[in-house]
Design a protein around this nucleic acid. Structure first.
Lengths: 252, 252
DNA sequence: CCTAGTGTTGCACGTTTCTGCGTACTAGCG
DNA sequence: CGCTAGTACGCAGAAACGTGCAACACTAGG
């Protein structure tokens, strides 16, 4: 990445996300933290941003407040996303589900990662367009409006022709008795189809999903390789899941 | 390689990849870095690119950056988009191309329209999730990063199974001699495939496309049903197109 | 066919810019 | 108050840069 490009990108992220975390930005784009910090320092000196401990914020305080709230809200999902992103090994093939957590995973993938990602979410596909080294395969089909993913016969047909190392599955509930659940029957079926096309299946389960249950079961707790969560494993809800045989994996 | 060829190629790479790295370009084409740098310097002086350490970037990031491109010539695109949206009749099936103009068409569709829209653009698909009565079919395939559309064998296979009343085609150039052109060979092939799956094909040609030409021809001017544009039909550029047999349709 | 003129190219040189690393300092947190 | 992570600063090496110059090719006119 060209130095000038790097600075443009920093400004862009600052504008769109309301903040820049030096460490994350460096990791995401395969840069040294030093270069990022140096840029931020110079941009701050030029009045283009406001340097703070850990990164930078936009100059205008109005934007900062908003960004701050957003930041706190997404922090949990980010932790799960970062942990899950590490499951996509260089050179491997991964299936990425739809939904906000899966979208966060797509964004958390290292910028220089060379891998193949299969997805049935147009939103995730568009996000992955930012990752130059990732081969992206979109599974077509009828668009399911609520969660913005494709499903149906066309998808099943396309999915039959692929095989992935890992499937990162998003659900709306992880419950000791109900298992892994989601809010729509067809969506559940689609997720099952995708799970059958990968060697390992990991569930993306940020805190608000733990202990929750929706109407339709995707899979029983024990039939996935791991459930990535940011809830501490000694939390009562987590204990209940572990007792029910859920393979919980704590995000750092 | 001829000097003039080299400069054309530099501009092409700049346009399609959004940047040129002097060293890489020289290595890739068996040139000296000196020559490349010299060209870039002159092009920058002529205002054709922006010289940065390591290579060059487009004059305005908006030219290439997909997100940035939205906002350029907004009103023009909207006029074309509204006119084109009227071509999607209630109850009919339409294929919608990728790109910013097609995205504008998706947004311009009436909120209560009952129709089926087929698209190979994740961005357009996501936008159509806002239209509750529109059935959306996403064509899967390998994601082409630059314009964020799918293409390849998987797409061709999926496209073979559909038939639409109308195809709304986005291009980067409408030129009296070059015809309808776009910046990538595979993209051009994909657009041809889609055109073959619809009864009528209409081109989305906002003013900046008129008279412009890119490297790869999608179709000759005469082989489409109509070319929707906001340029007045008595404009010299429009006249030249009409003389060349282009079926121009003026947007109101 | 020769020659002067023009433009392009590769190379050498000194300069500028960028980057990674070591060191010492500081903010945040328990 | 001590620990950790983040930070600033300085430095040295590497990479990229611009400039001047000489070699070369190509053209036009004699």
């Amino acid at each position: 990445m060209l130095p000038a490009q790097r600075r443009d990108e920093l400004l862009r992220v600052l504008r769109t996300e309301g903040r820049v975390v030096a460490k994350d930005f460096a990791a995401r784009h395969g840069l040294s933290e030093d270069s990022v910090r140096r840029d931020l320092r110079e941009m701050a000196a030029a009045g283009l941003c406001q340097r703070v401990y850990g990164g930078a914020l936009p100059v205008s305080p109005a934007v900062v407040d908003y960004a701050g709230r957003q930041g706190v809200a997404v922090e949990n999902k980010d932790r799960v996303a970062r942990r899950a992103a590490a499951l996509v090994r260089p050179g491997s093939t991964a299936i990425l589900d739809g939904g906000t957590t899966a979208l966060a995973v797509a964004r958390a993938l290292p910028a220089d990662l060379e891998a193949t990602v299969v997805t049935h979410s147009p939103t995730v596909a568009a996000a992955l367009a930012e990752h130059p080294a990732v081969k992206v395969l979109v599974l077509g089909g009828r668009l399911f409006k609520h969660s913005v993913v494709t499903s149906g016969a066309l998808l099943a047909e396309a999915a039959a022709g692929i095989w992935a190392d890992v499937f990162l599955l998003g659900v709306t509930g992880v419950h000791p008795e109900a298992g892994l659940t989601t809010g729509d029957a067809e969506e559940a079926a689609t997720k099952r189809t995708l799970a059958s096309r990968a060697g390992d299946t990991y569930v993306l389960a940020s805190a608000e999903k733990i202990g929750a249950a929706s109407a339709f079961r995707v899979l029983p707790l024990g039939e996935v390789t791991g459930i990535v969560t940011d809830v501490p494993l000694d939390d009562p809800a987590a204990r209940a899941l572990l007792d029910a045989g859920a393979p919980l994996v704590a995000a750092p």
